[in-house]
Design a binder for these strands. Structure first.
Lengths: 150, 150
DNA sequence: TATTAACCTAAAGCTAGGTTTAGGGATTAT
DNA sequence: ATAATCCCTAAACCTAGCTTTAGGTTAATA
Protein backbone atom coordinates (compact mmCIF):
# COMPACT_ATOMS: atom_id res chain seq x y z
CA UNK A 1 0.00 0.00 0.00
CA UNK A 2 1.26 3.42 -0.98
CA UNK A 3 0.31 6.97 -0.08
CA UNK A 4 -0.40 9.50 -2.77
CA UNK A 5 2.99 11.08 -2.21
CA UNK A 6 4.81 7.81 -2.76
CA UNK A 7 2.89 7.08 -5.93
CA UNK A 8 3.56 10.60 -7.20
CA UNK A 9 7.25 9.97 -6.76
CA UNK A 10 7.15 6.51 -8.32
CA UNK A 11 5.49 7.82 -11.47
CA UNK A 12 7.08 11.25 -11.40
CA UNK A 13 3.68 12.91 -11.45
CA UNK A 14 2.43 15.86 -9.38
CA UNK A 15 0.17 14.87 -6.49
CA UNK A 16 -2.44 17.21 -7.91
CA UNK A 17 -2.58 15.10 -11.06
CA UNK A 18 -3.25 11.93 -9.10
CA UNK A 19 -6.03 13.65 -7.16
CA UNK A 20 -7.41 14.94 -10.45
CA UNK A 21 -7.38 11.44 -11.94
CA UNK A 22 -9.14 10.11 -8.88
CA UNK A 23 -11.76 12.83 -9.14
CA UNK A 24 -12.30 11.91 -12.79
CA UNK A 25 -12.98 8.34 -11.67
CA UNK A 26 -9.83 6.66 -12.95
CA UNK A 27 -9.41 4.65 -9.74
CA UNK A 28 -12.82 3.10 -9.15
CA UNK A 29 -11.35 0.56 -6.74
CA UNK A 30 -9.31 2.97 -4.67
CA UNK A 31 -9.75 2.55 -0.93
CA UNK A 32 -9.50 5.20 1.74
CA UNK A 33 -8.59 4.92 5.38
CA UNK A 34 -10.16 7.76 7.35
CA UNK A 35 -10.25 9.92 4.26
CA UNK A 36 -6.74 9.14 3.08
CA UNK A 37 -6.16 7.42 -0.24
CA UNK A 38 -4.44 4.03 -0.14
CA UNK A 39 -2.96 3.01 -3.47
CA UNK A 40 -2.60 -0.76 -3.85
CA UNK A 41 -0.92 -2.80 -6.56
CA UNK A 42 -4.22 -2.56 -8.37
CA UNK A 43 -4.01 1.23 -8.67
CA UNK A 44 -0.35 1.05 -9.60
CA UNK A 45 -1.23 -1.17 -12.52
CA UNK A 46 -4.14 1.13 -13.30
CA UNK A 47 -1.69 4.02 -13.53
CA UNK A 48 0.51 2.11 -15.95
CA UNK A 49 -2.55 1.52 -18.10
CA UNK A 50 -3.61 5.14 -17.77
CA UNK A 51 -0.23 6.36 -19.00
CA UNK A 52 -0.33 3.95 -21.88
CA UNK A 53 -3.85 4.88 -22.92
CA UNK A 54 -3.05 8.57 -22.60
CA UNK A 55 -0.07 8.18 -24.89
CA UNK A 56 -2.29 6.35 -27.31
CA UNK A 57 -4.48 9.45 -27.47
CA UNK A 58 -7.45 8.31 -25.38
CA UNK A 59 -9.34 10.96 -23.45
CA UNK A 60 -9.69 10.84 -19.68
CA UNK A 61 -13.42 10.18 -19.83
CA UNK A 62 -12.82 7.13 -22.01
CA UNK A 63 -10.04 5.93 -19.78
CA UNK A 64 -12.56 6.14 -16.95
CA UNK A 65 -14.85 3.90 -18.96
CA UNK A 66 -12.09 1.35 -19.29
CA UNK A 67 -11.27 1.47 -15.59
CA UNK A 68 -14.92 1.00 -14.72
CA UNK A 69 -14.96 -2.06 -16.96
CA UNK A 70 -11.92 -3.40 -15.14
CA UNK A 71 -13.82 -3.08 -11.87
CA UNK A 72 -16.81 -4.93 -13.30
CA UNK A 73 -15.05 -8.23 -13.94
CA UNK A 74 -15.13 -10.86 -16.71
CA UNK A 75 -18.38 -9.62 -18.27
CA UNK A 76 -16.46 -6.73 -19.84
CA UNK A 77 -13.46 -8.57 -21.30
CA UNK A 78 -14.66 -8.07 -24.82
CA UNK A 79 -15.35 -4.35 -24.33
CA UNK A 80 -11.89 -3.94 -22.92
CA UNK A 81 -10.40 -5.96 -25.75
CA UNK A 82 -12.09 -3.84 -28.36
CA UNK A 83 -11.08 -0.56 -26.78
CA UNK A 84 -7.48 -1.69 -26.55
CA UNK A 85 -7.53 -2.93 -30.12
CA UNK A 86 -8.90 0.38 -31.33
CA UNK A 87 -6.15 2.26 -29.55
CA UNK A 88 -3.61 -0.15 -31.00
CA UNK A 89 -4.83 0.68 -34.49
CA UNK A 90 -4.87 4.34 -33.70
CA UNK A 91 -1.25 4.24 -32.57
CA UNK A 92 -0.24 2.29 -35.66
CA UNK A 93 -1.85 4.97 -37.82
CA UNK A 94 -0.21 7.70 -35.79
CA UNK A 95 3.19 6.11 -36.27
CA UNK A 96 2.65 6.00 -40.02
CA UNK A 97 1.63 9.65 -39.99
CA UNK A 98 4.70 10.57 -37.99
CA UNK A 99 6.92 8.81 -40.50
CA UNK A 100 5.52 11.06 -43.21
CA UNK A 101 6.10 14.08 -41.03
CA UNK A 102 9.61 12.84 -40.46
CA UNK A 103 10.24 12.49 -44.20
CA UNK A 104 9.15 16.07 -44.69
CA UNK A 105 11.40 17.27 -41.88
CA UNK A 106 14.33 15.32 -43.29
CA UNK A 107 13.74 16.95 -46.63
CA UNK A 108 13.60 20.42 -45.07
CA UNK A 109 16.73 19.62 -43.12
CA UNK A 110 18.52 18.74 -46.31
CA UNK A 111 16.97 21.77 -48.00
CA UNK A 112 18.31 24.24 -45.45
CA UNK A 113 21.75 22.71 -45.24
CA UNK A 114 21.90 23.02 -49.03
CA UNK A 115 20.66 26.61 -48.80
CA UNK A 116 23.31 27.41 -46.17
CA UNK A 117 25.98 25.92 -48.38
CA UNK A 118 24.82 27.86 -51.44
CA UNK A 119 23.80 31.12 -49.74
CA UNK A 120 20.42 30.88 -51.46
CA UNK A 121 17.57 28.43 -51.97
CA UNK A 122 17.74 28.20 -55.75
CA UNK A 123 19.39 24.79 -56.13
CA UNK A 124 17.55 23.42 -53.11
CA UNK A 125 14.21 24.58 -54.52
CA UNK A 126 14.97 22.93 -57.83
CA UNK A 127 15.74 19.54 -56.23
CA UNK A 128 12.44 18.54 -54.75
CA UNK A 129 12.47 14.75 -54.94
CA UNK A 130 15.26 14.10 -52.40
CA UNK A 131 14.02 11.28 -50.22
CA UNK A 132 10.40 12.40 -50.20
CA UNK A 133 7.65 9.81 -50.53
CA UNK A 134 5.38 10.01 -53.57
CA UNK A 135 2.39 11.72 -52.02
CA UNK A 136 4.34 14.55 -50.47
CA UNK A 137 6.41 14.95 -53.61
CA UNK A 138 3.25 15.20 -55.70
CA UNK A 139 2.26 18.37 -53.89
CA UNK A 140 5.66 19.86 -54.65
CA UNK A 141 5.77 18.77 -58.25
CA UNK A 142 2.86 20.92 -59.28
CA UNK A 143 3.74 23.87 -57.08
CA UNK A 144 7.33 24.33 -58.19
CA UNK A 145 7.51 23.20 -61.77
CA UNK A 146 4.83 25.22 -63.51
CA UNK A 147 7.31 26.16 -66.24
CA UNK A 148 9.01 22.99 -67.49
CA UNK A 149 6.43 20.33 -67.10
CA UNK A 150 2.95 21.28 -68.16
CA UNK B 1 -4.01 33.31 -56.19
CA UNK B 2 -6.65 31.73 -53.98
CA UNK B 3 -9.37 33.05 -51.70
CA UNK B 4 -9.62 31.89 -48.12
CA UNK B 5 -12.54 29.64 -49.05
CA UNK B 6 -10.57 27.89 -51.78
CA UNK B 7 -7.63 27.31 -49.48
CA UNK B 8 -9.93 26.01 -46.77
CA UNK B 9 -11.25 23.47 -49.21
CA UNK B 10 -7.81 22.51 -50.54
CA UNK B 11 -6.53 21.76 -47.04
CA UNK B 12 -9.82 20.63 -45.62
CA UNK B 13 -9.61 23.19 -42.83
CA UNK B 14 -12.33 25.50 -41.50
CA UNK B 15 -12.06 29.08 -42.73
CA UNK B 16 -12.01 30.17 -39.10
CA UNK B 17 -8.79 28.23 -38.59
CA UNK B 18 -7.08 29.99 -41.48
CA UNK B 19 -8.14 33.35 -40.13
CA UNK B 20 -6.91 32.29 -36.71
CA UNK B 21 -3.53 31.29 -38.15
CA UNK B 22 -3.31 34.59 -39.94
CA UNK B 23 -4.10 36.44 -36.74
CA UNK B 24 -1.36 34.50 -34.96
CA UNK B 25 1.06 35.72 -37.61
CA UNK B 26 1.63 32.50 -39.53
CA UNK B 27 1.37 34.22 -42.92
CA UNK B 28 3.71 37.20 -42.61
CA UNK B 29 3.80 37.62 -46.38
CA UNK B 30 0.08 37.42 -47.00
CA UNK B 31 -1.28 40.15 -49.25
CA UNK B 32 -4.72 41.70 -49.19
CA UNK B 33 -6.71 43.34 -51.93
CA UNK B 34 -9.18 45.83 -50.47
CA UNK B 35 -9.22 43.94 -47.20
CA UNK B 36 -9.55 40.49 -48.72
CA UNK B 37 -6.83 37.90 -48.21
CA UNK B 38 -5.06 36.64 -51.31
CA UNK B 39 -3.28 33.34 -50.75
CA UNK B 40 -0.40 32.82 -53.18
CA UNK B 41 1.79 29.76 -53.76
CA UNK B 42 3.93 31.12 -50.95
CA UNK B 43 1.11 30.80 -48.40
CA UNK B 44 0.15 27.40 -49.75
CA UNK B 45 3.66 26.17 -49.09
CA UNK B 46 3.55 27.90 -45.71
CA UNK B 47 0.45 25.90 -44.88
CA UNK B 48 2.17 22.66 -45.81
CA UNK B 49 4.97 23.59 -43.47
CA UNK B 50 2.53 24.62 -40.76
CA UNK B 51 0.77 21.27 -40.90
CA UNK B 52 4.07 19.45 -40.78
CA UNK B 53 5.39 21.47 -37.83
CA UNK B 54 2.10 21.09 -36.00
CA UNK B 55 2.26 17.33 -36.39
CA UNK B 56 5.78 17.45 -35.10
CA UNK B 57 4.45 19.02 -31.91
CA UNK B 58 5.56 22.63 -32.41
CA UNK B 59 3.41 25.33 -30.85
CA UNK B 60 1.77 28.03 -32.93
CA UNK B 61 3.93 30.77 -31.48
CA UNK B 62 7.06 28.90 -32.52
CA UNK B 63 5.66 28.22 -35.96
CA UNK B 64 5.19 31.97 -36.23
CA UNK B 65 8.86 32.41 -35.40
CA UNK B 66 9.77 30.09 -38.23
CA UNK B 67 7.49 31.85 -40.69
CA UNK B 68 8.97 35.19 -39.73
CA UNK B 69 12.42 33.77 -40.42
CA UNK B 70 11.24 32.63 -43.83
CA UNK B 71 10.18 36.18 -44.58
CA UNK B 72 13.57 37.53 -43.50
CA UNK B 73 15.63 35.78 -46.14
CA UNK B 74 19.02 34.01 -46.22
CA UNK B 75 20.26 35.47 -42.93
CA UNK B 76 18.01 33.02 -41.06
CA UNK B 77 18.85 29.78 -42.88
CA UNK B 78 20.74 28.42 -39.92
CA UNK B 79 17.96 29.28 -37.44
CA UNK B 80 15.49 27.56 -39.68
CA UNK B 81 17.77 24.59 -40.08
CA UNK B 82 18.20 24.19 -36.36
CA UNK B 83 14.50 24.46 -35.63
CA UNK B 84 13.70 21.84 -38.26
CA UNK B 85 16.45 19.58 -36.99
CA UNK B 86 15.11 19.85 -33.44
CA UNK B 87 11.65 18.91 -34.60
CA UNK B 88 13.08 16.03 -36.56
CA UNK B 89 14.71 14.70 -33.41
CA UNK B 90 11.56 15.27 -31.46
CA UNK B 91 9.53 13.25 -33.94
CA UNK B 92 12.10 10.46 -33.92
CA UNK B 93 11.82 10.29 -30.14
CA UNK B 94 8.03 10.38 -30.33
CA UNK B 95 8.02 7.48 -32.76
CA UNK B 96 10.18 5.45 -30.39
CA UNK B 97 7.83 6.27 -27.53
CA UNK B 98 4.83 5.25 -29.58
CA UNK B 99 6.45 1.92 -30.38
CA UNK B 100 6.67 1.24 -26.66
CA UNK B 101 3.05 2.23 -26.23
CA UNK B 102 2.22 -0.06 -29.11
CA UNK B 103 4.04 -2.98 -27.49
CA UNK B 104 2.03 -2.46 -24.33
CA UNK B 105 -1.23 -2.34 -26.30
CA UNK B 106 -0.31 -5.47 -28.20
CA UNK B 107 0.33 -7.20 -24.92
CA UNK B 108 -3.01 -6.04 -23.49
CA UNK B 109 -4.68 -7.15 -26.69
CA UNK B 110 -3.22 -10.59 -26.29
CA UNK B 111 -4.04 -10.52 -22.58
CA UNK B 112 -7.73 -9.84 -23.13
CA UNK B 113 -8.13 -12.33 -25.95
CA UNK B 114 -6.58 -14.91 -23.63
CA UNK B 115 -8.92 -13.81 -20.82
CA UNK B 116 -11.93 -14.09 -23.12
CA UNK B 117 -10.83 -17.56 -24.15
CA UNK B 118 -10.34 -18.68 -20.55
CA UNK B 119 -13.22 -16.79 -18.93
CA UNK B 120 -10.75 -15.34 -16.40
CA UNK B 121 -7.44 -13.51 -16.27
CA UNK B 122 -5.50 -16.13 -14.34
CA UNK B 123 -3.40 -17.63 -17.14
CA UNK B 124 -3.05 -14.26 -18.84
CA UNK B 125 -1.82 -12.66 -15.63
CA UNK B 126 0.74 -15.40 -15.17
CA UNK B 127 2.20 -14.96 -18.67
CA UNK B 128 3.68 -11.52 -18.51
CA UNK B 129 6.63 -11.66 -20.87
CA UNK B 130 4.70 -12.14 -24.12
CA UNK B 131 6.33 -9.81 -26.61
CA UNK B 132 7.00 -7.02 -24.13
CA UNK B 133 10.29 -5.16 -24.29
CA UNK B 134 12.62 -5.42 -21.29
CA UNK B 135 11.86 -2.12 -19.60
CA UNK B 136 8.11 -2.58 -19.61
CA UNK B 137 8.45 -6.19 -18.54
CA UNK B 138 10.61 -5.15 -15.62
CA UNK B 139 7.73 -3.20 -14.10
CA UNK B 140 5.53 -6.27 -14.37
CA UNK B 141 8.06 -8.71 -13.06
CA UNK B 142 8.23 -7.16 -9.65
CA UNK B 143 4.54 -6.38 -9.37
CA UNK B 144 3.20 -9.84 -10.22
CA UNK B 145 5.77 -12.32 -9.00
CA UNK B 146 6.20 -11.48 -5.33
CA UNK B 147 5.62 -15.11 -4.42
CA UNK B 148 7.78 -17.35 -6.60
CA UNK B 149 10.82 -15.33 -7.36
CA UNK B 150 12.23 -13.39 -4.45
C1' DT C 1 3.43 22.24 23.48
C1' DA C 2 4.16 23.85 19.24
C1' DT C 3 5.41 23.34 14.73
C1' DT C 4 6.35 20.86 10.66
C1' DA C 5 4.90 17.61 7.21
C1' DA C 6 1.72 15.04 4.70
C1' DC C 7 -2.76 14.36 3.84
C1' DC C 8 -7.69 16.38 2.46
C1' DT C 9 -11.59 19.41 -0.32
C1' DA C 10 -13.83 22.72 -3.28
C1' DA C 11 -13.39 25.98 -6.39
C1' DA C 12 -11.05 29.18 -9.15
C1' DG C 13 -7.53 29.75 -12.61
C1' DC C 14 -4.67 28.69 -16.64
C1' DT C 15 -3.11 27.37 -21.58
C1' DA C 16 -3.48 25.95 -26.21
C1' DG C 17 -5.89 25.90 -30.08
C1' DG C 18 -9.41 26.77 -31.98
C1' DT C 19 -14.89 28.00 -32.85
C1' DT C 20 -18.91 30.78 -32.55
C1' DT C 21 -21.43 34.98 -32.51
C1' DA C 22 -22.87 39.39 -33.89
C1' DG C 23 -22.58 42.79 -37.01
C1' DG C 24 -21.18 44.65 -41.51
C1' DG C 25 -19.55 45.17 -46.69
C1' DA C 26 -19.25 43.80 -51.63
C1' DT C 27 -20.53 40.99 -55.59
C1' DT C 28 -23.50 37.99 -58.26
C1' DA C 29 -28.10 35.61 -59.54
C1' DT C 30 -33.20 36.16 -60.08
C1' DA D 1 -34.16 45.57 -56.23
C1' DT D 2 -33.62 41.95 -53.39
C1' DA D 3 -31.69 37.86 -51.84
C1' DA D 4 -27.91 34.65 -51.65
C1' DT D 5 -23.10 34.05 -51.22
C1' DC D 6 -18.64 35.39 -50.32
C1' DC D 7 -15.66 38.09 -47.71
C1' DC D 8 -14.36 40.89 -43.17
C1' DT D 9 -13.58 42.03 -37.72
C1' DA D 10 -13.68 41.87 -32.71
C1' DA D 11 -14.75 39.56 -28.97
C1' DA D 12 -16.88 36.03 -26.45
C1' DC D 13 -16.95 31.22 -25.85
C1' DC D 14 -15.37 26.37 -25.54
C1' DT D 15 -12.70 21.95 -24.18
C1' DA D 16 -9.16 19.17 -22.23
C1' DG D 17 -6.21 18.54 -18.83
C1' DC D 18 -4.31 20.01 -15.44
C1' DT D 19 -2.57 23.51 -11.44
C1' DT D 20 -3.16 26.76 -7.87
C1' DT D 21 -5.33 28.66 -3.95
C1' DA D 22 -7.46 28.87 0.37
C1' DG D 23 -8.66 26.68 4.19
C1' DG D 24 -8.76 22.50 7.22
C1' DT D 25 -7.40 17.71 9.63
C1' DT D 26 -4.10 14.46 11.52
C1' DA D 27 0.37 12.61 13.12
C1' DA D 28 5.01 12.70 14.19
C1' DT D 29 8.95 15.52 15.79
C1' DA D 30 11.68 19.31 18.66
Amino acid sequence: MYTIGQVAEMFDLPISTLRYYDKQGLFPQLIRESGIRKFSENEIEALRVIECLKKSGLEIKDIKLFMDWCAEGPATYSDRFQLIRNQKERVEAEIKQLHKTLDMLKFKCWYYSKAMEDGNEDTAKASIPYGLPEDIRAAYDNSHTQSSDK
